Structures are given as structure tokens and as C-alpha cells.
Amino acid sequence: MTLLRPATSASAAGHGDPVNSPRGGRTRERLRITRRLLGRRFVVAIPTIILVSLGIFAIAAASPFEPLAAHLGPNYQSATQSQRDAVRVAYNLDQNWFEAWLRWWGHLLTGDLGWSSIRSQPVADVIADRLPFTLGMASAALITAAVIAVVGGAFIGMHRGGVLDRCVTGLAAALAATPPFVVSLVLVSVFAVSLGAFPTSGARRPGDPYTLDGILTHAVLPFIALTMSMIPWLLLTMRSAVVDAAGSDAVRAARARGIGGWALLRGHVLPVSVLPTLALLGTRLPELIAGAAIVETVFGWPGLAEALVDSAVALDFSLLAALAVGSAVLVLIGSALSDAAAVWIDPRIGMSA
């Protein structure tokens, strides 16, 4: 009895304590690998953000646009040279781009994003007013596109070669080759102009305050356009991954054991197939941001796209740098999180920064 008691206690501890159980060990290993990945990505992100901000200032300074035209508007042609020089000094347009970059980082490190010369308000206020529109639209479209692509790609992948598979694959390939602004213009022509079912632009009627009903009504067409621009590459990737997984030895062995249908898809196909889709989400985030900017411009959606374009034309360094660097940070965070999710699902892939 005395010899069996330690063994029994150890066995009970091993099965009762999740930390010491095999599942607890796998969880700790996942956490370790995920933390290591995120730590490496954070270290890499710091110089990346610095270089991106430096490149933004350098490229903006080399832009062929005349910033005075944006600041003076219709008075640009009639303005005298002394008036133009005064505007240059007032808006710091006469300073070197490298000095402007150093000055911007100096303010940023103190928590000050600067002053937007074209909006005549703090950059933080510009972002606070417009970010909810951009973030809400992009997040809703991304989640919807991901759900449709995963479900649709899994279904047609498990029924490859059929009529539905060929039709959906061909439609997705054609849609992937269509620029987002073309999709947006078609939606405007059909549903806004011809049918009059939805508003053509903005997020409210002229003169009306923002309301939830008005925002949702105006958001329908840009939401559809942005979602349609993201579905093809996600769906085709998911479909290809499901086809590869369905033809693997592991799945054939599962079929031989009598496993099929939803149990086969959930237990043997999806865990492997979802990894390429997660990785693609991280690498294609810049296209999501670019697509959102195009869609917002076409539909006049009051997001950050208009502010980004205006700041680039007018060389509003403070606003331009904040928006561009913020976009880069979102891409880096999204890429790191998608890779971390993939590592959590399958630590054997050994992903690193």
C-alpha cells in the first residue's frame, strides 16, 4: 500500500491538475512559442516604423504637388509672391523634410500628434472623428469576407470539380482581377442611380446630424464593395488548402476508418486548411487598407481616406505621417496576430519573425 500511494497521488495530480496534464503542457508550449513570435515581431516593428515614417517625409517632399495650391485654394493664381512666402512660413512649408521628420518625432514622443494645417485642428481630433468610420467599415467587411470565404471555400473544396466549384472559382478569379473602384462604380450605377435603393455618397443627408439609421443606410454599398474586394483571394486560398488536405494520406486514412461528412471536415481538414488563410490575412492587410481608401473615396465615406489624400497633396506632414505610420502599425499588428493565431493552432509550423 505504501508503495502504491505515491504513484496513485501522482496519477491523481497528473489527471486532476491541468498544469501537469498533457493538455496543460501543450498549452504552455503554445504560449511560449506565441510569446516568442510576438516578441520578435515587436523588436522588428520598431525600426520598421521609424523607416516608414522617414520614407513618408522623403517621398512627400519629392512630390510634384504644390502644397500652396491646397492651402490657398482659388486664391492661388492671384496670390502675390510675398503672400505665398508668408503662407510657406506660416505652415512650415519652407523647412527641410528631414528637419520636419525630427520635429514630428519630437512632438510624438511627448504625446502630441501635431496640428493639421489643412483641417485647422489637432491631428488627434481629425483621427478621432474619422477613425470610427474607417475602422468600423474595414472590420465589418473583413470579418464578413473571412466567414464567407472560409465556409464557401471549405464547401467547394470538399466538392471540387462540380458545377458549383467551377462557377464559384471562375467568378472569384474574375472578381479578384476587378479593381475595387470598378466594383464601387458598378454598385453606384445600379443600386444608387438606376434603382435609387441606396444613397450615393456620404454617411448622412446634407444638413442632417449623424444617426445610426443614416450611417447604416449609407454604409450598405461601400460595405458590399469592400467585402467583395476581399472575398476572392481568401476564398480561393481556402478552397486550394481544402483540396490539398482532402487528398492527403491522413484524410484518406480517416475515410478508411469510416469518418466522413462534418466530422471529417472539422477534425481533419479544417485545422490544416485554415492556416494558409490566416497567413494570407496578415500579408494582404495593406491591400485591405488600400481598398478601403479607394472605396471611401468613391462613396464619399467620411473616413480617413480623404484626409490621407488631402494631407499628401498639401504636404501636411503631421497628418500625413500620423495616418501613414498608423496604417503601417495596423498592418504589423495584424500580421503578427494572424501568424500568432496560426502558431497557436499548430505549433509545429515553427513560425518566426
Rank of each mutant, 00 (worst) to 15 (best):
P180K: 08
R41T: 01
L175S: 14
Y210E: 06
A70Y: 12
Q83M: 10
T227F: 04
M238W: 07
R36V: 02
G25C: 04
V309C: 02
D94M: 11
P286W: 04
A314W: 04
G114S: 03
L216Y: 01
A254M: 09
C167G: 14
V151K: 02
T144R: 00
P209Y: 11
A128W: 08
V220P: 02
P347H: 07
V19W: 12
I50Q: 00
A60N: 13
S11G: 07
D208S: 15
F98N: 03
L319H: 07
L216E: 05
V151A: 10
H71D: 11
A328Y: 00
L308Y: 15
A176R: 05
S327P: 01
F57V: 06
A307S: 14
G111R: 09
A13S: 11
Y76M: 04
A250I: 12
A58P: 12
L31E: 12
R36Y: 10
I148T: 09
L187H: 01
P179L: 00
A279D: 13
W233H: 11
H218P: 01
A79K: 00
F223N: 07
L234Q: 11
L323I: 13
A342W: 07
T297S: 14
I59P: 08
N92L: 10
E29A: 14
V147W: 12
A328D: 01
G258A: 08
I224T: 11
S21Q: 01
R284S: 15
L236Q: 04
S78L: 13
P122C: 07
A256Q: 00
I56V: 15
A340D: 05
V186Q: 03
V190I: 13
T277V: 15
M158P: 07
V151P: 02
V147T: 03
G16C: 02
A69I: 02
E66M: 03
I156Y: 04
G258S: 06
V52Q: 00
W97D: 04
A61I: 09
S273K: 07
R36L: 06
G202H: 05
L171N: 09
I215Y: 10
T48E: 00
A254P: 11
G282K: 02
L332T: 00
V186E: 05
G261V: 02
S189K: 11
G260R: 15
R32W: 05
I148H: 07
S139R: 09
A140P: 08
L281F: 11
I294Y: 03
A250S: 14
G350D: 14
R36A: 13
S352R: 15
H159R: 14
L265E: 10
R23S: 15
G16D: 09
L164G: 05
A174Y: 10
L226Q: 03
T211V: 06
L221F: 10
L275S: 04
L226K: 03
L31A: 14
L315G: 10
T110A: 13
V325C: 10
V147S: 12
G258M: 03
R284G: 12
S189R: 12
A203H: 06
A322M: 03
P22T: 08
A336L: 03
L68Y: 01
A145P: 07
F57G: 06
R130C: 08
L171G: 09
L221T: 01
F98T: 06
S318W: 06
W97T: 07
A197L: 15
G157D: 04
